[in-house]
């Protein structure tokens, strides 16, 4: 296993930056999630690491070895980087077992088959070794693809939206199983997702991207509690934004004050996570909309003509008047 490092990597498509000066490190044996909306450049990062594309500038290292510089790129097949593609890209003409064995061609045939079977067994798919990809369910295909990527003992493994094609129940189950396997094998992992929940739950380290730029690189806890910017805060869940002025160490919003370290009189954005807006009986705000959202209600509150969203545990009634407390851990101020 090796760490993976990007240094000042840029990559342009048709004159637009797909990646603009991105530097980040996936620590050895850990899981790094690349989180961002489509077009943020997260998949490009994986393709650059795999060597399927080359950076326009900057360099990429696997361990201490430089594998990509603008002029020179080590061919993909020599990098020993495993990849699970979004559509899995299993070889349609090979059985599940033969798919897993494909990357083990340096071994003797008996060893190869035995190892492939062991990997499938580990994924709970030993009985499906003889099945062709089109005979497998989506979840089974995903697991075969993961087994195939891990079998050759790659220096790092890259997962491109690995759970996006699956239904929600299967998705959570598969995510946990995949993570368990990755942790067990101590595999350096980079995985791409647009789902904040996946990223927060699965990753040791988080890289938040938007429009080709790295917004923040931190642990999930840090990123959630101390976002580097408004965009970084918005990437991890619904937020309420209010544009105001920092005065006397606070920014005043219609729903309450938020502590600010900005100089007096400077313009500021106050951002509050929906789950940090707490309700109690009172009169400051009015409930204008209530929608069930799992165990919580997604509530819209109106005060002084401004509407915010809150995730409230208690059942709230439409039209009810409430007081609002803003939880400090989910409230931030950024300079405007």
């Amino acid at each position: 296993m090796s760490s993976v490092t990007l240094r000042n990597v840029r990559r342009a498509y048709n004159g637009a930056w797909a990646l603009d000066d991105v530097s980040l490190t996936a620590p050895e044996g850990k899981v790094l999630a690349l989180l961002g909306p489509s077009g943020s450049g997260k998949s490009t990062i994986l393709r650059l690491i795999a060597g399927l594309e080359s950076p326009d500038s900057g360099e990429i290292l696997i361990g201490n070895e430089t594998v990509s510089t603008p002029g020179r790129a080590m061919p993909t097949e020599q990098r020993r980087v495993g990849m699970v593609f979004q559509d899995y890209s299993l070889f349609p003409h090979l059985t599940a077992g033969a798919n897993v064995a494909f990357g083990l061609d340096k071994l003797a045939r008996a060893d190869r088959d035995e190892q492939a079977l062991r990997w499938l067994d580990r994924m709970g798919l030993k009985h499906r070794a003889g099945a062709y990809p089109h005979e497998l369910s989506g979840g089974e295909q995903q697991r075969v693809a993961l087994a195939r990527a891990l079998a050759p003992k790659p220096r790092a493994v890259l997962l491109d939206e690995p759970f996006s094609g699956l239904d929600p129940v299967l998705r959570a189950e598969l995510r946990d199983a995949t993570l368990a396997t990755l942790a067990e094998t101590q595999t350096t992992t980079l995985f791409v997702t647009h789902d904040a929940e996946d990223a927060l739950q699965a990753a040791d380290q988080l890289a938040i991207l938007k429009a080709g730029k790295l917004l923040q690189s931190a642990t999930p806890r840090e990123a959630y509690d101390a976002p580097a910017s408004l965009d970084a805060a918005a990437a991890l869940g619904p937020i309420n934004v209010f544009e105001g002025v920092s005065e006397g160490g606070v920014v005043r919003t219609p729903f309450g004050e938020i502590a600010s370290s900005l100089p007096n009189g400077s313009r500021a954005y106050a951002a509050v996570r929906a789950e940090a807006v707490h309700l109690k009986p009172g009169s400051a705000a009015r409930v204008v909309d209530v929608r069930p959202h799992g165990a919580h209600d997604l509530v819209r509150l109106e005060a002084q003509g401004v509407v915010w969203r809150a995730l409230a545990p208690a059942r709230t009634a439409l039209g009810e008047r409430v007081d609002v407390a803003l939880h400090a851990a989910g409230s931030f101020v950024f300079s405007a």
């Binding site: 795999a50 060597g51 399927l52 061919p75 993909t76 097949e77 020599q78 990098r79 020993r80 980087v81 495993g82 990849m83 593609f85 559509d87 890209s89 299993l90 070889f91 349609p92 003409h93 494909f102 990357g103 061609d105 340096k106 195939r148 990527a149 050759p152 790659p154 890259l158």
Partner: peptide, 26 residues
Amino acid sequence: SKGLDASARTLGAGPWRRLIAVDLPI
């Protein structure tokens, strides 16, 4: 698909092996 070629490459297959083991059978 491009994905299959990329898959084969990340699994360490060089151009000849990709031709013989992936492209031609498919």
